[in-house]
Simulated assay, not measured.
Amino acid sequence: MVDCFRKIIRNEGFSRLYRGISAPILMEAPKRATKFAANDEWGRFYRTLFATPSMTQSLSILTGATAGATESFVVVPFELIKIRLQDRASAGKYTGMLDAVVKTVKAEGPLALYNGLESTMWRHILWNAGYFGVIFQVRALLPPATTKSSQMSNDLLAGAAGGAVGTILNTPLDVVKSRIQNSPRVKGQVSKYNWAWPAVGTVMREEGVAALYKGFLPKVLRLGPGGGVLLVVFTGVMDFFRKMRGEEVREGAEL
């Protein structure tokens, strides 16, 4: 990871580290909102379906996985543009996010923005299943929160553990998703990487299992602590709106 930082800065300049930043910035708010809103709605649906009054770990995993699939539809176009902007081979090909969108649609058609939908769904299914499933389990193991600060500590720890486990589970699908989305569709040609699980097999066969975890360290350093911060912020914001509406504030949002 450090070697990658050094070479990018030396060969391409410091600003290259932030190339393609507009797409993830625009993606973050709808992505996170969809994640928790979908998790909440699917949780209600599954509790009704299985006649279960409260969440269990199995339901947390199932609900998280379904929310991840839902979230994918929001994420895919942003992810595709981000990857193409950040890829070194594309340097100079696009002047910015809108230019990348226009050129991609013009060359490959509007549906090209959803290239990699299937692999993105698998990536988010695995991450969200791990994230919400681990949050439920860690919360059950921790001492009950009695103060606002202890609630924040519990959420930070549970969310960080969930983010780390989710990253372990979904990194192979993230690797193949990037390869699928960074392979422009050429009429009459079959892309090397098309579908998620066959692509996993191709990478394993040609490069070994370790190749499926390329980029794992920077990813887990981002999504582990990020998962904790995400849960703390979500819980705090939900408590704030409950107070505004005169509702009872619960210790930790039910996920």
Rank of each mutant, 00 (worst) to 15 (best):
W197S: 07
G13W: 12
V249W: 01
P198S: 05
L141H: 02
I168E: 01
R84M: 11
L169E: 04
V105L: 14
F14E: 09
K187L: 14
G96V: 14
Y114I: 09
L117R: 00
E254L: 09
V237G: 02
E251S: 06
G159R: 04
G130V: 06
Y193Q: 05
A23D: 10
G109F: 12
G208E: 13
P144M: 03
V74M: 06
G133D: 00
D239V: 03
P24M: 14
G130H: 04
A33M: 09
S58A: 08
A38C: 09
R19G: 03
K177M: 12
A65G: 15
V165N: 00
T56E: 02
S150G: 02
M55L: 09
W195P: 01
R185L: 13
A158Y: 04
Y193A: 08
R245A: 11
P24R: 12
R245H: 05
T171E: 12
R44D: 11
K243Q: 09
D239Q: 10
A140Y: 02
G64A: 07
R47C: 14
Q86S: 14
R245N: 07
M1W: 15
G13I: 10
L231T: 05
F241W: 11
Y213G: 06
V203I: 13
I25K: 08
K219H: 14
Q181H: 05
A196C: 15
G208H: 14
F73A: 06
S58G: 05
M204Y: 10
V2F: 15
F73S: 03
T167M: 12
L126A: 10
T202V: 10
A129M: 02
I135N: 00
I83P: 01
R32P: 05
W197A: 07
Y94G: 00
L217D: 08
E28T: 13
K177W: 09
V105K: 13
V176R: 01
V237P: 05
K219Y: 15
R32M: 14
N170P: 12
L113C: 08
K103S: 07
F132Y: 11
L255E: 02
E108P: 06
G224E: 04
V175Y: 11
Q86D: 07
F216H: 11
F136L: 03
S54A: 06
F132C: 04
F73I: 11
F78R: 03
M238Q: 10
P218R: 14
R88Y: 07
T63G: 08
S90R: 09
R32H: 12
K192E: 15
G116I: 05
V102G: 00
L156A: 15
F136I: 00
A145N: 03
D174V: 10
G68P: 12
L26A: 12
E247K: 13
V74C: 07
L49A: 14
P144G: 04
R139P: 00
A100G: 07
V138A: 03
L142H: 01
L49V: 07
F73T: 06
G96D: 15
Y46E: 04
P77K: 08
T56I: 05
K7A: 11
E248W: 02
K192R: 12
A23I: 11
Q151F: 00
T66N: 07
D87V: 09
G201R: 10
A51P: 01
N170K: 08
A29K: 03
A37E: 08
S149D: 08
T34R: 01
P30H: 05
L212R: 06
V138Y: 00
A89F: 09
A67Q: 05
L217Q: 10
G227K: 01
